[in-house]
């Protein structure tokens, strides 16, 4: 564990990313305490620029809602959607990839054609179609994002499992009478974990972007305040009140950047082939 942190912290960007992400998490956790009122409620007259009225640091939007409150509550939604949809995508992608890689042959062909079916459709278009079919609630948004983002996981896991499948320790496990399921879960997958973790950290970032894009188009959950919705609502007043789009935009950029930096740091720390590289 100490060795892991030492390798991780060697990448300065990754440490900065971790701090930004921690800040976002704290904001999300503190939102209900700092801003107990609903972020949808009107608090002042509309279009107050930032730093003009005490108590409303970032001003108000077109309907007089507190922008700072929206930012904090939006962080909750972004993180929630990012994390949960990634977990759902992993739980679809890992089993499919593991089965395809382990059994090979017809199972592999079948599962990979199924995966390719999803890969051939542009993911954003598919997400829009899915949300148009379902109701735009938070649960369905998460599901839609997960459905469009699992194929790369399946591909990655399949590749890793393929290369581990014929290692001697897996053969030894077969000989000692363990069932295939046990071998996949206890012998193969733990060794395939590092690249999956790296991919997952990047998927959280992509999911946050997807959710923002969907909310921007008005396909978000109408009951929850999100960063994408804030930008989308402010786009009509972009010329008169540019900060209303700019501020949540910065929040998205920072969070996604932080997750990407973390992903890169994790890759450095977990990838044994890079461990001994010269600085």
């Amino acid at each position: 564990m100490r060795g892991f942190w030492r390798r991780y912290s060697r990448n300065r960007g990754a440490v900065i990313g971790l701090f930004i992400l921690l800040a976002v998490i704290i904001c999300a956790a503190a939102a209900p305490f700092l801003f107990p009122r609903s972020p949808w409620s009107m608090v002042q007259r509309p279009f107050l620029p930032p730093f003009t009225v005490d108590g409303l640091m970032l001003g108000t939007d077109a309907l007089g809602r507190d922008v700072l409150s929206g930012l904090f509550h939006g962080a909750r939604v972004s993180l929630l959607v990012g994390l949960v949809s990634t977990v759902v995508a992993l739980s679809i992608g890992i089993p499919i990839g593991a089965l395809a890689g382990y059994y090979g042959g017809l199972v592999d062909d079948g599962l990979m054609r199924f995966t390719e079916f999803f890969q051939t459709i542009p993911s954003f278009a598919l997400a829009i179609v899915l949300l148009a079919i379902f109701q735009p609630s938070l649960g369905y948004i998460i599901l839609a994002i997960a459905i469009v983002s699992w194929p790369p996981v399946a591909r990655l896991v399949r590749g890793e499992v393929l290369s581990l499948r014929h290692r001697e320790f897996v053969e030894a496990a077969t000989l000692s009478g363990q069932s295939n399921l046990r071998i996949i879960i206890w012998q193969v997958l733990p060794n395939a974990l590092p690249p999956i973790i790296v991919l997952a950290s990047l998927m959280v970032a992509t999911a946050i972007l997807l959710e923002s894009s969907l909310s921007f188009l008005g396909l978000g959950d109408p009951n929850v305040m999100s960063w994408g919705y804030m930008i989308g609502a402010a786009r009509t007043v972009l010329r008169t009140a540019w900060w209303l789009s700019f501020i949540p935009g910065i929040a998205i950029v920072l969070t996604v950047l932080a997750l990407n930096l973390i992903g890169e740091g994790l890759n450095d720390a977990l990838n044994p082939r890079l461990r001994s590289r010269t600085p």
Partner: peptide, 16 residues
């Protein structure tokens, strides 16, 4: 019928 493998570095699961 059991087997002893060639490479002691790849025949033991590194994470077990």
């Amino acid at each position: 019928i059991q087997m002893i493998f060639q490479d002691p570095y790849s025949s033991l699961n590194p994470r077990a």
